[in-house]
Write a protein that binds this DNA or RNA. Structure first.
Lengths: 243, 243
DNA sequence: TTGACGATGTGTACAGCGTACACCTATCGT
DNA sequence: ACGATAGGTGTACGCTGTACACATCGTCAA
């Protein structure tokens, strides 16, 4: 391990590279993060980065991993309690991810199994397991939460107030609001409830959806669900048995 | 409008470009779809594409839009019925999207409001509205469904059987399974229930989660939910009021 | 003390990308 | 008959990720 004597400048390290990349993405947007620009920001030649990062993909993986590592753990839940700890854990993740605008996209794009990501999933799973959920139920409940374990949800209606919802590219036709009366009704209703707001209250929608899902989880637990029996009577011929 | 007489070869068109791009993505993966390669596949010079597509982004938007346009509509639901039509609509979308491996990523990555996409959201919204849901409830229910309206859900445990879950890049440490006892317990349980399977039954998980969510929706409707009151007693200080 | 080694940073080079811009040509409306 | 215009061509530019050969330097064994 070299560079024990700081010969003028701080030596590079994976952590330093990742932190710089995150800072750069925060400041200029993730699409501006190129190996060259990042190297420049670190006062180093581009190829130097490859000593600490396998390739660009690994760089972004590392950025996401670092972010998840920053999520504060919640206090050990009291026995049998799971709802509040889950809510708080996810809320903490949402805080971290939404404070880095590029992170949501990065997260949706990759299926990471890095140490911090696995550690996070472990923590969340343990909340359920320690509250007495079976491994089976915990597994399904994690799937039910889906991307919401990362505190993210898709922006469904980018601009629910009548007009600016239409901003198509030049080459294809601009959609006509009159073709979407249902959506317009929803947009009008939402706009009436939140005067002045230009789009959905994403935080409120997230909280709402999470609560409904947590209700569902509570019910599964109460009724002693396990994957042997199905949730409900009327099921469509299950896709899994269909092909 | 030129080229009315077919002078040898089929003229280019936005639709033809998009179909070719989809075919190319299906065959070689979306990352291999470059303007140059696509042009070559169409027997045309790269810049020719720009007469039908604004830029690369518009190309991918168009591909996704085309795909959604291919989702077959469901029959007009009988009055008051919403659950089966919603399930069938989403199931149809899932069929389409999962048959193009690149489409899930493409969908997660972009927030599209193209005609076909809006049309699809309109159809789904109308099922609820026509079943007597208020605009308010329909709005929230769409958010609750989230990315699942596209028939997609994240791959949470890529390989839930003990070993291959660890496949990190060279530069960062390989995670140690012993650090994740909860996840390993889940993986072991899942593996025991589906011998021979290497990963989760994504279709079954999707169906399961969708049913739980539909249960939640049914309950909201039954209890006459509206966005004035909250879902349940114990709420964390709402993020929307927190900052 | 020496000297080989391994880890780190440098420099050059290359193939591939998206696309701006100028151009040619065939077609259509007048 | 003719100018406008839409569609296809060719060239060129700046940017990307990264392979590869090289220089530098701290560490440890001999």
């Amino acid at each position: 391990m070299p560079r024990s004597t700081p010969s003028g400048k701080e030596p590079l390290s994976r952590a330093r590279v990742l932190r710089a990349a995150i800072a750069l993405a925060d400041a200029e947007g993730i699409e501006k993060v190129s190996m060259r620009r990042l190297a420049e920001a670190l006062g180093v030649v581009p190829m130097a980065l490859y000593k600490h990062v396998a390739d660009k993909d690994d760089l972004v993986d590392g950025m996401v991993d670092t972010l998840i590592g920053d999520v504060p753990p919640v206090a050990e839940p009291r026995p049998g309690k799971w709802r509040a700890p889950v809510r708080e854990t996810i809320s903490g993740t949402r805080d971290v991810i939404t404070s880095h605008p590029w992170a949501r996209r990065a997260f949706e794009t990759r299926t990471l199994r890095t140490p911090a990501v696995l550690g996070y999933m472990e923590r969340l799973s343990q909340i359920f397991l320690r509250a007495g959920f079976s491994a089976d139920l915990t597994h399904h409940v994690m799937h039910l939460l889906g991307a919401r374990i990362w505190g993210i949800s898709p922006e469904l209606f980018t601009a629910p107030d009548g007009v600016p919802m239409a901003q198509r590219r030049v080459t294809s036709g601009t959609p006509d609001p009159a073709d979407y009366p249902g959506i317009m009704a929803i947009a009008a209703d939402a706009a009436a409830r939140r005067p002045g707001a230009a789009s959905c209250d994403e935080d409120a929608e997230f909280d709402f959806a999470l609560e409904v899902i947590l209700d569902g989880i509570a019910r599964l637990r109460r009724t002693g669900w396990d994957s042997g029996r199905s949730t409900r009577g009327q099921r469509v011929p299950s896709r899994s048995s269909r092909n």
